[in-house]
């Protein structure tokens, strides 16, 4: 889990990792060049406005290789989160929370070993957030995850490492230290 004050470069670090940002110095090592499952922070700009919710959900799996499992997963997630009726909706018609859920589900349906979630629950109210954690997050088990969050409650998800970005660099901190930082900054 990646935490740090606003503007410290958490999203920039993800950008650098996927190659969306040119590095001025340093290097990025990824174990494979396979696709990365990515849920963007700005949920609207992450959805293609000319595709329906369903086509957005399945875009990564269709581009990788048509995958029946992804379709089944997509249907199950939409139903579990109570948004099955949005299947044929266009992204511009969705609320901020719905867009974020679609981004999260799309990441879950992406055939990838590495998952990057940038503030994945930021626009969700507590009930929907709990439902998303319960229904979608288990799908990421067994994959390497890098999650950016400002939300102290996200620590309950349980991560192997907590990285705090500060002015003097990136520090490996304990869950308690990450919690202290997040509570002090909210």
């Amino acid at each position: 889990m990646l935490v740090g004050p606003n503007g410290c470069g958490k999203t920039s670090l993800l950008d650098a990792a996927i190659g969306a940002r040119q590095l001025r110095s340093g290097r990025v090592w990824l174990k494979s060049e396979r696709p990365v499952a990515y849920a963007v922070q700005d949920a609207l700009s992450g959805l293609l406005p000319w595709l329906t919710v369903w086509d957005n959900l399945l875009l990564p799996s269709r581009l990788a290789a048509p995958d029946q499992a992804a379709e089944a997963d997509g249907e199950a997630f939409l139903a579990a989160l109570g948004i099955a009726s949005l299947r044929h909706a266009m992204p511009t018609r969705l609320s901020g929370g719905e867009r974020q859920m679609i981004n999260l589900i799309r990441a879950a349906c992406t055939p990838a070993d590495l998952v990057m979630l940038d503030e994945p629950f930021g626009a969700l109210h507590s009930g929907t957030r709990a439902l998303a954690i319960q229904e979608v997050m288990p799908r990421f088990e067994g994959r390497t995850m890098l999650v950016v969050s400002h939300e102290p409650a996200d620590l309950q998800l349980g991560f192997d490492r907590y990285l705090l970005i500060r002015d003097d660099g990136v520090a490996d901190v304990s869950a308690e230290e990450a919690l202290c930082f997040l509570e002090a900054s909210t």
């Binding site: 950008d15 190659g19 969306a20 060049e33 990365v36 499952a37 963007v40 992450g46």
Partner: peptide, 12 residues
């Protein structure tokens, strides 16, 4: 759009 840019890179 920045989200699409990120998605395109992430999907390689």
């Amino acid at each position: 759009p920045i989200g699409q840019e990120r998605l395109a890179h992430a999907l390689r």
